[in-house]
Design a binder for these strands. Structure first.
Length: 480
RNA sequence: CGGGAUGUAGCGCAGUCUGGCUAGCGUACCUGCAUGGGGUGCAGGUGGUCGGAGGUUCGAAUCCUCUCAUCCCGACCA
């Protein structure tokens, strides 16, 4: 076991921070709540970005960039929106050595400026839909920052679309939710549960919010991404109106959706172990590392390293990118080099030493299971991709099993409380309580409604809290 | 922002209660030799003025006041 990482059973929060530090993913910035994303963390973000960006473009969206600063008055145009975000906004009051006429908000999200711009761009139904995404940073002055999960500034993606009809906008909202689900499941190996948010958990200004909820390995829930149907709330506030096919004026229906760097936190808390980071191969910036080993510098440089580089080129070619690295650091002993990649979560380690060299093999070691296999050089191009797929599948299956084992049912508040106190995890209940009921449940138990899972949308039953019939099935949990 | 705790070397800590020799230890880092397949051994060495400011005192890491930061629990959140 790693001596620089607190075991997760002992102290989960500390374990989480230790994993990040040991993998050199991030560091604290001089400003409270802000973080520096180090190359290891950033390259992971780039991998995540790549998968999402590709899917956005494939579904007809284009990227653009909107300003960091927003006039304060913009934020105030949508009542719920300002109420929801005002407490956590950073405000610029001075610039150029003078006090500004109107304070500027450092964007906590961009519905308002984008709404403003859309109103200028939309005149006719022919101008719709607008399907724009932005990759950028936002700032929310959170009270309790936590690396990757809740920092004052964070990197994310926010999609903003405007449509002529409600049907089309709702369809977009659900389509994006499904794209999120698919990428989280297939690429990040996160078994997320897509669903609809309750009234109390909705985005400020949205008619409806959908989410992908994940369970972390401490059994707490993490909202991994959200997609909102904003109705005509923002189009009315920002005057996004157009003339429809019948010649009448109408307000657009808008949506917004986002995923953030929080996904990195989700990856860590879902897959990693007491040795450090464990990454699903499909998002790992380095999928395999080759470690040349020899006590003789002449053999090391003259034979083993050249062979390692040859294998690296061949594997990169099959994997379609610069995904394989060769660790030639001679000042580190083999064990030290093994360890450094172990902590950074590299899915496969390929040991190429004098032993293997003589027999035309490499020793392949899996990060997720520690399993070791000897593979002939000529079989590597076939076996490595297969093994990466196996790891990907194993990580997903393991996480799904964990979630299923930690999901319980409750029919009454008594049962609910008992599960929260004794078991934790997700609780499935029928629920149709109000915003105030949600609040009361939270105060009594610490658990909040995570979502009404889409997969149960047809089921109805008696509400565990109000006792009313016809309630939808919901998931409750303690959440990050 | 409320409750609790902590700030001493890159990291982890001791020393503080009972002020006083050049502020220690582990690890990391540098050099050398040996070693070399899941965190190597020996030897030598670099690095801190004790979170910050002010005060008490002959003398402060140790006592007092203020302040800043971080962590944990809560309220808030992608």
């Amino acid at each position: 076991m790693a001596k620089n990482i607190t075991p997760k059973e002992q102290d989960f929060s500390q374990w989480y921070l230790d994993v990040i530090r040991a993998a050199e993913m991030a560091d604290y910035a001089p400003v409270r709540g802000c973080m520096v994303v180090r190359p290891t963390g950033y390259s992971l973000w780039e991998m995540i970005q790549k998968h999402f960006d590709e899917a956005f473009k494939e579904s007809g969206h284009v990227n653009a960039s909107f300003p960091l600063l927003i006039p304060q008055s913009f934020m105030e145009k949508e009542a719920e929106h300002v109420e929801g975000f005002a407490p956590e906004c950073a405000v610029v009051t001075h610039a150029g050595g003078e006090e500004l006429e109107e304070p500027l908000i450092v964007r906590p999200t961009s519905e308002t400026v984008i709404g403003h711009m859309y109103s200028k761009w939309v005149q006719s139904w022919r101008d719709l839909p607008i399907l724009i995404n932005q990759w950028g940073n936002v700032m929310r002055w959170e009270k309790r920052p936590r690396l990757f999960l809740r920092t004052s500034e964070f990197l994310w993606q926010e999609g903003h679309t405007a449509h002529a009809t409600k049907e089309e906008a709702v369809e977009e909202t659900l389509m994006m939710l499904d794209i999120y689900r698919r990428i989280m499941v297939e690429e990040l190996a996160l078994p997320v549960l897509p669903g609809e948010k309750t009234e109390g958990e909705r985005f400020p200004g949205a008619d409806n919010t959908y989410t992908c909820e994940a369970m972390m390995s401490d059994k707490k829930a993490l909202q991994a991404g959200t997609s909102h149907y904003l109705g005509q709330n923002f189009s009315k506030a920002f005057d996004i109106k157009f003339q429809n096919k019948n010649g009448e004026m109408d307000f657009a229906h808008t949506t917004s959706w986002g995923v953030s760097m929080r996904l990195i936190g989700a990856l860590i808390m879902t897959h990693s172990d007491n040795d450090g980071l464990v990454l699903p191969p499909r998002v790992a910036p380095t999928k395999a590392v080759i470690i040349p080993i020899s006590t003789d510098p002449a053999v090391f440089d003259g034979e083993i390293v050249p062979k390692a580089k040859e294998l690296q080129r061949a594997l990169n070619k099959v994997l379609g990118g610069r995904f394989v690295s060769v660790d030639t650091r001679q000042h580190l002993r083999p064990g030290d080099r093994f360890f450094s990649h172990l902590q950074k979560g590299v899915p496969l380690r390929l040991e190429l030493g004098e032993r293997e060299f003589g027999t035309g093999k490499v020793k392949v070691v899996r990060r997720d299971t520690g399993e070791k296999t000897d593979v002939m050089w000529e079989d590597l191009e076939k076996r490595i991709p297969d093994m990466l797929d196996e790891i990907q599948k194993n990580l997903f299956d393991r996480a799904l099993k964990f979630r299923e084992e930690n999901t319980h049912q409750a029919a009454t508040m008594t049962e609910f409380k008992e599960i929260i106190e004794k078991k934790g995890g997700f609780i499935e209940v029928f629920f149709d309580g109000s915003k105030d009921d949600e609040k009361a449940i939270k105060e009594a138990t610490g658990a909040t409604p995570r979502c009404y899972p889409l997969e149960y949308s047809a089921e109805r039953g008696k509400c565990f809290y109000t006792g009313k019939d016809g309630a939808r099935k919901a998931i409750f949990a303690k959440a990050y």
